[in-house]
Amino acid sequence: MKTAKTPQEVHAVLAAAFNTKNLDVIMNVYDANGIIFPEPRKEVSGQSQFVEAVKSICAVPGVMEIKTVYCLQSGDVAVGRSEWSITDKGKTQVAAKGIELMKQQPDGSWKIIIDHAFGAEANLVA
């Protein structure tokens, strides 16, 4: 399984993982003890709920693409801003602007600990 060696690689590794539709490959990009927002204003944490949230995202047909808007690193933590979409047969199924908090792991790889997939949307209030 490919892991991100730098925080700047996390978005590309995440998109490639989602495109496999393989839960183990996707979960390798995340710290499952973290937080994910599979929908606007829907915070999910805890291993079983996290896995269910990832499964629901995988159920969306199509190919995920993630553009890194920026990635700022300080030591073993980084914050990224993304623009992402899932497109199927030329039709956008879902698209949003996200914010991701990443942490370097003991093995040197980087994982997402908070994935606020809709966190940079202009109309979203926390």
Rank of each mutant, 00 (worst) to 15 (best):
M1L: 08
K2E: 14
T3E: 04
T3I: 05
K5S: 10
K5H: 02
T6A: 01
T6F: 06
P7N: 08
Q8W: 11
Q8C: 00
Q8R: 11
V10Q: 01
V10D: 01
H11T: 09
A12V: 03
V13L: 00
V13C: 02
L14P: 02
F18R: 01
T20M: 00
T20G: 06
T20F: 03
K21N: 06
K21V: 04
K21T: 09
K21G: 05
L23K: 06
V25A: 09
V25F: 00
M27D: 11
M27G: 08
N28H: 10
N28C: 08
V29K: 01
Y30W: 01
D31H: 02
D31C: 13
D31W: 00
A32R: 15
A32I: 12
N33V: 07
G34D: 11
G34V: 08
I35T: 08
I36Y: 02
F37E: 15
F37W: 14
P38N: 02
P38Y: 05
P40K: 12
P40N: 11
R41I: 04
E43K: 07
V44Q: 06
S45A: 04
G46P: 00
Q47T: 13
F50G: 00
E52D: 14
A53S: 09
V54R: 06
V54Q: 07
V54D: 03
I57N: 14
I57S: 14
A59T: 09
A59N: 05
A59Q: 14
P61K: 06
G62I: 09
G62T: 06
G62H: 03
M64G: 00
M64S: 08
M64P: 02
M64L: 12
I66V: 15
I66N: 04
I66D: 04
K67Y: 07
T68G: 02
V69A: 10
Y70T: 09
C71D: 09
C71Y: 05
L72T: 11
L72F: 08
Q73K: 08
S74P: 13
G75S: 08
G75K: 14
V77T: 13
V77L: 12
V77N: 12
V77R: 12
V79L: 05
G80E: 14
G80R: 15
R81L: 10
R81M: 07
S82K: 04
E83L: 06
W84L: 03
W84G: 00
T87R: 12
D88C: 04
D88W: 13
K89D: 14
K89E: 15
G90M: 05
G90H: 10
K91C: 05
K91V: 12
T92Q: 15
A95H: 11
A95S: 13
A96F: 03
A96V: 03
A96K: 07
K97W: 03
K97F: 07
K97T: 12
G98Q: 01
G98H: 03
I99G: 14
I99Q: 13
E100N: 02
L101M: 10
M102T: 00
M102E: 04
M102A: 08
M102Y: 11
K103R: 15
Q105F: 00
P106L: 02
P106V: 03
D107A: 07
G108E: 02
S109T: 14
S109C: 05
W110H: 01
K111G: 05
I112L: 12
I112A: 01
I114N: 14
D115V: 03
G119R: 09
A120I: 01
A120P: 07
E121V: 06
N123P: 11
N123Q: 13
V125A: 13
